[in-house]
């Protein structure tokens, strides 16, 4: 037992003595949607550059930016991936902790698909129908009422006579923000009764999801949503495009406003539910943590993020040529982000 105590003491001193050398490796945190792309680049970078392979954590966009903004020390992440844009309050939080210079790069686009198990009737939805299926309160006859719809056919007689069950991302997902921005806000602002509201009540009216069991939040990853869809063929789920791409034999996507969720439709912007993906770089780490510039160069190289690049195989939708050029330039100079 004494020998063990000595071993323990030796171990502890060794640990504290070497703790100071943290920060010889890039650390990346952030969105679970960007995670497959960030990891693919990290692996490629580790194999070809001679630097250590970066460590990538999937923390969700909000959680990632919180860690990212915690300080400038070498043990804080150098890069944070995001499936939505950074907010002013997050920039302020960064600045308050001494992280004054943050650069933004758009890496490409991601499609949000509304899918169900294969074999069911193919659904053709529009934004308004989706909004009416998911919102807590909806305008009926010029008045805001609690969502009365039980079946899809209650919303539109052409839709199936099935109970509305939607598995959607919980609020810890960046995808939830995209659902709110791209579906809920867009659809609800068409109604005069909501337009007339003040900003606060308007946000509540547009963004609150129903809580009567028709909209089920999934706070885990999309694999869970996929399993639920397969177990419940009448339900629909909100997923990202890469899951549809990889599981085309198990699930099918509903058309949105008449558009099918295909690579080309999302890339061209025809399909309405697409959003940009980002990463944010702590500029103060460039030059201190080895390899950051090279990692960014790998991510923004044509062999990675173009239409024929290896990220496209993982389901990333490439940005148009002109935008890629502009973003690649930004990735070299790393100017501070301006909202």
């Amino acid at each position: 037992m004494f020998r063990k105590t000595f071993a323990l003491a030796a171990f502890a001193t060794m640990a504290f003595a070497t703790a100071a050398q943290a920060g010889d490796q890039i650390r990346i945190v952030g969105s679970s949607t960007v995670y497959p792309f960030a990891t693919a680049v990290a692996e490629q970078f580790g194999k070809t550059s001679g630097f250590k392979t970066p460590v990538v954590e999937s923390t969700g966009t909000g959680g990632g930016l919180k860690l990212f903004c915690a300080g400038n020390g070498p043990d804080t992440p150098s890069i944070s991936d995001a499936s939505r844009r950074i907010t002013q309050s997050e920039i302020d939080n960064c600045a308050a902790n001494g992280v004054k210079h943050v650069a933004e790069v758009v890496i490409g686009y991601d499609g949000i698909v509304v899918a169900q198990a294969k074999g069911g009737p193919k659904m053709a939805l529009n934004l308004d129908e989706l909004y009416r299926a998911m919102a807590k309160t909806v305008p009926v006859n010029g008045k805001l009422v609690a969502n009365p719809y039980k079946k899809w056919s209650d919303i539109n007689p052409k839709l199936p006579k099935e109970d509305i069950v939607v598995f959607g991302p919980a609020s810890n997902h960046g995808t939830r923000d995209a659902v709110v921005d791209l579906i809920m806000d867009k659809a609800c602002e068409q109604y005069p009764v909501i337009k007339a509201l003040a900003k606060g009540p308007k946000q509540v009216a547009c963004d609150a999801m129903r809580e009567d069991g028709a909209f089920i939040e999934v706070s885990e990853n999309y694999t869970v949503t996929l399993q639920k869809l397969l177990a419940m063929p009448s339900a629909v789920g909100i997923l990202t495009y890469s899951y549809l791409d990889q599981n085309g034999d198990k699930i099918q996507a509903a058309t949105i406003d008449g558009q099918i969720a295909t690579y080309d439709n999302i890339a061209s912007g025809k399909y309405p539910l697409s959003r940009p993906l980002f990463f944010y770089v702590k500029t103060s780490h460039v030059g201190k943590i080895p390899g950051i510039k090279e990692y960014i160069a790998e991510f923004t190289s044509e062999k990675a993020w173009s239409k024929d690049g290896y990220l496209a195989e993982k389901g990333l939708i490439a940005a148009p040529d002109a935008q890629r050029k502009a973003e690649a330039k930004k990735a070299k100079l790393l100017p501070d982000v301006k909202l």
């Binding site: 640990a15 070497t18 580790g46 392979t53 460590v55 954590e57 999937s58």
Partner: peptide, 17 residues
């Protein structure tokens, strides 16, 4: 504590990720 992460390199000591 950050052990749920994508880590390619096999750790050589208890201090590596």
């Amino acid at each position: 504590i950050g052990m749920v992460a994508f880590i390619v390199d096999v750790p050589a000591s208890p201090l590596d990720p």
